[in-house]
Design a protein around this nucleic acid. Structure first.
Lengths: 196, 196
DNA sequence: CTCGCTGATTACCCTTGAGTAACAATATGT
DNA sequence: ACATATTGTTACTCAAGGGTAATCAGCGAG
């Protein structure tokens, strides 16, 4: 038998381990047995803490999304001008990717995207990130256009990150943030100048 | 019994139908029976044309990726200056999304992304799109930075599209292309001016 | 020391779905 | 008309994996 743990500690451990397992094998690729094994425990233990596989996965998506959002919020809080804010936002995002690798894979490496409920969870995150970005965009263009641009920037960060993560390239989040925010900020300023 | 079709026609039909089925239900969500049913036929018929489920799915990814790439290539061929080329590229992409909806879902709505082999197929497509974009980026920055920016633009298009497709918003691809390429082109020009 | 509570295990059930073997129906060329 | 290739169908096998019932083990309180 394995080491006994108090319920709350076991739950934490399971979330921790499950994140790794799902990130590497995907939702369908990983069985509840895999999760249990990785935790050094047997399947029913997992079911003592989570009602179903979906339940466990949703809990993870929530936790992980929360982490990303708070980090961005914290990072951008101190900035005043838009340019600086843009860079800090991207920096927080890329730092998150760099040192919470598995979290990125879970959320955007997907496996989530094809399930109604999972996709909702992911969308909620991207939508909130987009919301955080919206203030950077000049207010004098129509709201739909604003939303488009906000999501464009979110996608941009995702695209850049995915390439790096997929290819196992290791990268400097801060440098990346500078490079990407240069592009983004310049773009945003120009868009503001024309009434289109 | 259903209508008899010559082998090649049946194969085409199966690819056609399978695209719809997988796009809507995802790889794991759709069974081979689902595909067969949708084609008005029984499972073994599908296996007469494709060795396995994976095989069928890979064939689809290939076909669909090909379609996207050729459309972008065709669209950008006629352009001379970078700005125009950027807009035409995005326009081709968004048009592809608009009227080959299922193809977008199959490729980027994912379910692909978590499988080694599937992910490779998708990566090959995004990498080629990025390659097509690279000429637009000033040559006097380092190659890694160039690649980053290229993938940034690919991600950007994907992010914008995903939001629209997910929310079922219908959109004007040409307008979208103008809005997005304004942002992108302005960004690219500025990046060229600094040696960073 | 033993009762009982919490944490963990063994050994199952049962559905789903990929893949196949054997057979039936419809063309087509002679 | 009849042999033969081609297209389809019925009816299965088999493994994987989500989920559960019954049971066991350790540990603190009385």
């Amino acid at each position: 038998m394995s080491i006994r743990l108090p319920a709350s500690a076991r739950r934490e451990q399971l979330l921790d381990v499950a994140l790794q397992v799902f990130a590497h094998q995907g939702y369908h690729g990983a069985s509840m047995n895999d999760v249990a094994d990785a935790a050094g425990v047997t399947k029913p233990v997992v079911y003592q803490h989570f009602d179903s596989k979906r339940d466990l996965y949703l809990a993870l998506l929530d936790e992980v999304g929360e982490r990303l959002l708070t980090q961005i919020a914290k990072a951008t809080a101190g900035a005043t001008d838009g340019k600086h804010q843009t860079e800090l936002g991207f920096r927080a995002y890329f730092r998150w990717v760099a040192d919470d690798h598995d979290a990125f894979l879970l959320l955007f490496g997907s496996g989530a995207r094809r399930d109604e409920e999972f996709n909702d969870a992911v969308r909620k995150v991207t939508a909130q990130v987009a919301e955080a970005i919206k203030p950077l965009i000049t207010a004098d263009i129509d709201p739909e256009h604003q939303r488009t641009l906000a999501h464009a920037l979110v996608g941009l960060a995702e695209g850049v990150s995915r390439r790096l993560v997929d290819n196992g390239v290791d990268f400097d989040p801060d440098l990346l943030a500078r490079q990407v925010s240069d592009l983004a900020w310049a773009g945003l300023r120009v868009v503001g100048r024309k009434i289109s």
